[in-house]
């Protein structure tokens, strides 16, 4: 395959030339985090997702790209959106998929993550999509598994496909990411979505502002090239994109702020606050939302919200990741 047909393969359209990244393949076994990707690789995934999205608009939403490949969705944490999105993506690419949730696995019998993974390995899956409550769980598996590991969220570390679908959504609305002011507001400390988005957006040249209570600021975050402020108004001022992060009640182990009511007063995204942003601002949220905590329903359901588009785009982006990690068009040409 030549670079002229980035994502061209049976049933998958080539990406328009002007959107192409400079490279044609993702030379990784795993997708553990945005930290491991170059800007060109990110663009390649986003470009490929463009081609993938078209498949979802067809009456028969299926291409043979991953026919004969086995993908295991191994989820140790509750997830509706991400797991469903991966599963649909896998099925649209004709992969054989199976879902393992922690409650139905041997984990309840005391098996370690490594043993669970090695037992799955013995049945030769091609890829394992892993969600786990421990940061670095995917790195652990990547070191011991032949199968490609796709990180579907590891602890407080990364959630790379979320950041990719966010970028895809931003690009759809703003054409380019470079130069945009992106404000990310919420529980920054416990958020893997934040960590992946900061990596991605700074790599693609956005001006990233983060805001939230000082108790929920990851130490040293400014060393990643972002601006931090406890003033939401300052973060939102002139923003092209406002991304709210879930106040992760389930991860709150201490008293990081006095009450949800006070949180909403100081940091909640309301229509009034949003007036400071650019007139064509878009509002994003990785879900699940706490309405009336980090985001007012008026904003969540309002005209600037692209929250459901994010969900829709998740399928195309995950198809792109699965396809590229499996070898992309090069692999199919060889097969």
């Amino acid at each position: 395959m030549t670079s002229k047909h980035v994502a061209a393969a049976p049933g998958i359209a080539a990406v328009p030339a002007e959107q192409r990244s400079g490279i044609s393949a993702l030379r990784h076994k795993d997708l553990l985090g945005i930290a491991d990707l170059t800007a060109d690789e990110i663009r390649l995934i986003l470009d490929t997702a463009e081609a993938m999205r078209e498949i979802g608009d067809r009456p028969i939403k299926k291409v043979p790209a991953l026919r004969g490949k086995t993908v295991v969705n191994l989820f140790f944490e509750a997830s509706t959106r991400t797991r469903t999105s991966f599963e649909i993506a896998e099925k649209r690419l004709s992969a054989d998929t199976l879902n393992i949730a922690a409650t139905t696995s041997s984990v309840v019998k005391g098996e370690t993550l490594v043993d669970t993974a090695l037992n799955l390995e013995a049945m030769a899956p091609d890829m394992i999509v892993l969600r786990h409550a421990s940061s670095g769980a995917c790195h652990l598996l990547a070191r011991i598994c032949r199968a490609g590991i796709i990180n579907a969220g590891d602890g407080m570390h990364e959630h790379p496909t979320q950041a990719l679908l966010d970028a895809f959504t931003i690009r759809e609305h703003k054409k380019t990411i470079a130069g945009l002011k992106v404000a990310i507001v919420g529980d920054l400390l416990h958020s893997r979505v934040l960590r992946s988005n900061v990596q991605l957006l700074t790599k693609l040249g956005a001006e990233v502002w983060v805001s939230g209570p000082p108790t929920l600021m990851p130490p040293g975050i400014e060393r990643q090239g972002v601006r931090r402020t406890t003033s939401v108004d300052e973060a939102v001022e002139g923003a092209d994109v406002v991304m709210l992060l879930r106040v992760q009640l389930e991860r709150m182990q201490g008293t990081f702020f006095p009450s949800l009511r006070e949180y909403f007063t100081l940091f909640g995204m309301t229509r009034e606050r949003l007036r400071r942003a650019k007139p064509d601002v878009i509002i994003m949220h990785p879900g699940p939302m706490n309405r009336g905590v980090e985001i007012d329903s008026e904003v969540a359901d309002g005209p600037y919200s692209v929250i459901l588009e994010q969900v829709a785009n998740g399928v195309a982006v995950r198809m792109a990741v699965l396809y590229l990690l499996a070898g992309g068009a090069e692999h199919e040409a060889a097969a």
């Binding site: 930290a35 940061s135 670095g136 590891d154 602890g155 407080m156 570390h157 990364e158 893997r192 960590r195 990851p218 130490p219 040293g220 975050i221 060393r223 990643q224």
Partner: peptide, 13 residues
């Protein structure tokens, strides 16, 4: 250690 590296890796400090 609570600092940049733990922060980046999502490890509690």
């Amino acid at each position: 250690h609570e600092g940049y590296h733990a922060s980046l890796l999502g490890l509690r400090g």
